[in-house]
Structure formats: C-alpha cells, structure tokens
Amino acid sequence: MQLRCQQAELERALHQVSRAVARRSTLPVLSNVLLVADEGALRVTATNLEIALSVTLPADVLEPGQLSVRADVFSDFIGSLPRQEVTLTVSPGNTDLRVTCGTSKARIPGIPAEDFPTIARIGDQPPTAAVSTEVLREAIGQVVFAAATDDSRPVLAGVLLEFRGQELTLAAADGFRLSVRTLSLPQPAATDLAIIVPAKALGELARVVADGEETVHLLVTPNRSQVLARSGRLEFLSRLIDGSFPEFRQIIPKQWRTRVTVDREAFLAAARRAKIFAQSNNEVVKLQFLPGDSELDPGSMVVSAQAADAGDTEDVLPARVDGPEATIAFNGRYLTDVLSVAKATEIAIEMTSPNAAGVFRPVGDDSFVHVVMPMVIGTA
C-alpha cells in the first residue's frame, strides 16, 4: 500500500472515527483503525462492535492496500504533523505502516486487515429513507434522553424508529416518561418498518453527522440486525435491539381536565431554581395551576420546591389556565430535560389528576409530545 493525502484531511477523519474506537477490549484489533486505500481514496474505519464509523478522504493512491494500526498512536502522530502532504506506505509482506511528512518519519506496527471485523456499507444500495440532517439531529435530541440508562429491559434502552410512508417517528421511554417526535421525510420510505436503535448509538450519530451535509441516508439491513447511515463522506453503523417496543400511542392520554399554557423559557428558569431545593427532597417539584377570574387575568402557575434541610423556593408565572384549579408534582430533572429540548416559545401542560400522567406539548407544534408520570406530593 502506498498513498499520499493531506495531513488536515487525515487528521479530521481520524478525529471523526475516534468515537467508535474501543477503549477497553480483550481484542487488540478493536483499538485500531482500519486503513483501506483504493480508487483514489483512503477510507478510515473504527468499530467497538456496537457502532462503526468510516470516513472517506481523497488520496493519491499509488498502490492499493489495507492495514489496521493503533488508533491512539496513529492519531496523535498525525495530529502533531504540519499541514503538509502525508505519505503512507506498507511494504509487501510487511505489517508496519511507515508515515512520512516533510522531515518527519514514523513506523507504526499494524495488524493485518483480515483480522479487523467486517463492516457493512451502504455503497450503491438504495437507502430505506433520506432525512434532513438538521431535523434528524433535533429529533434525536428530543427523544434520546428519555431512554432507560440500564439494560434490565433492553428495548427501553433503545429508541424506536418507525418508518411509515412519508413519516418517521422516534420514540423513547424509561418507564417513567415517554418522548415522541414525528418528522416528515422528503420522499416516502422504501418500506414501512420499525427498528430499535440503542440510545447511546443514536446519540453518537447525532454528534458525528456532518454539519455541512443536508441529508442523512438511512439503510436498514435486510435481516434487520443493523442500521447504516451516510452523511457526506461519513458512514455510521449500529447494531439493532431485538424485541418489541411498547405500544407508545396508547400511553399518551387523549383527554385532559386542566390545561396550562406558559412561557417555556420562564418555566425552564423556574424549574431549574426549584430543582436546587428539590435535590434534598427526592427531586419533587410541585406545580400549582390557578385559573384567573377574568379575560384580563387568565391565571397563573406556581412552581415550588421545599426540603427540611435546604429551605424552599417559589415562582409565580403568568399562565393561561383552562379547567379547574389543580396541583401535580414531577421529578425536577424530568421537567428541565423536556423544557430544554422543546423549541416552541410556549409549552402546554395537560393533566387529568395528580396521580395520572402529565402531557407536555409545545404550542403550535404537533410533531413533539412528552409524557411524564407524576410524583407523590409529600411534606418536607
């Protein structure tokens, strides 16, 4: 193998795939990056067997070939080089990678490419769906935090991706809250199907998809064991979780008794203040909805928290209250989580009773809904 490429391009590619390098593994090859030189390009790949990342960069390939080398050593050395042309060479019958850049040289021992795991690629296959990069990243951010963080129920540690015609729905739940985001696809999906992607993997996808690329192409493998994504020169792969996701649409309450509309930023600020005190009282933040007595006084919402050893706090926010006076309590972190990802200026909270789930909906945006189970209101 022999090729020439630009140091800046190679450094960027190594940085992009670094998130898939296994940090602790009994298989040494998983701490490596795979270098494949062919047809005027160099492809750099890393995998930890949960996800894989590949980046292709332009290169002057004098002799095609492939080899895997230690990711940390190779990345650190390439990052230390000047912004000049880099030459990578592997002699026939040898597994040492020789790197040359200006007056700098290095020899890095490698492992034969045959020992590196086989990574599926989209290639020329028609994708299952194409999604706007910006919209997909926002949608992932609005649901991934609601997935379970333990593997006691594997399907809840994942995010459901449901392709139906020209709609893609993402849903995540941990048993205490449910987050659902629906987005429109530019073109109908190749087939209707539902898959469960590990939440951590989906979070990585949102981080690595290129800012400059407008579209992410998604492909579900025929055996539905993996999902691939391509954004520009980057390809991403994740295993899928086998199982059935809960019927989330049945969890969302269809009716409400009291509905409150409030400024989201003001509510978020008040919830953050309340959370300071709620930490000493099982994270309980209480919301009290007070209807107004005229059109000029539509009502208010009181956000409060108290703890015997920390003290107490209270914010009174102007709000439109429809229905009777009501009180409900939520985990303070759950409140700040949903208020941080909802993008609307105002948010509506719907409830039927203090012991039934509350529903959060951004006003004017039907694509996002969040359901949270209430907490028992006790005395500090």
Rank of each mutant, 00 (worst) to 15 (best):
P291V: 10
P291I: 06
P291S: 11
G292N: 08
G292R: 04
G292Y: 06
D293K: 14
S294F: 05
S294M: 10
S294P: 07
E295N: 08
E295M: 09
E295I: 02
E295T: 12
E295G: 12
D297K: 09
G299A: 00
G299W: 00
G299N: 00
G299M: 01
S300R: 11
S300I: 05
S300A: 15
S300K: 07
S300V: 05
M301D: 05
M301R: 03
V302T: 07
V302P: 02
V303R: 01
V303C: 01
V303Q: 01
V303I: 10
S304Q: 12
A305I: 01
A305K: 01
A305D: 00
A305W: 00
Q306T: 06
Q306W: 03
Q306S: 14
A307C: 06
A307N: 01
A307L: 08
A308Y: 10
D309F: 05
A310N: 06
A310C: 06
G311P: 09
D312A: 15
D312S: 15
D312F: 09
D312I: 08
T313G: 03
T313I: 11
T313E: 08
T313D: 09
T313Q: 10
E314P: 04
E314S: 13
D315N: 15
D315C: 14
D315G: 11
V316Q: 15
V316A: 14
L317E: 07
L317N: 12
L317W: 09
L317F: 12
L317Y: 10
P318W: 13
P318A: 14
A319V: 13
A319Q: 11
A319W: 12
A319T: 11
R320H: 12
V321C: 07
V321D: 03
V321I: 10
V321Y: 06
V321T: 09
D322G: 09
D322C: 07
D322R: 13
P324A: 15
P324C: 14
P324M: 14
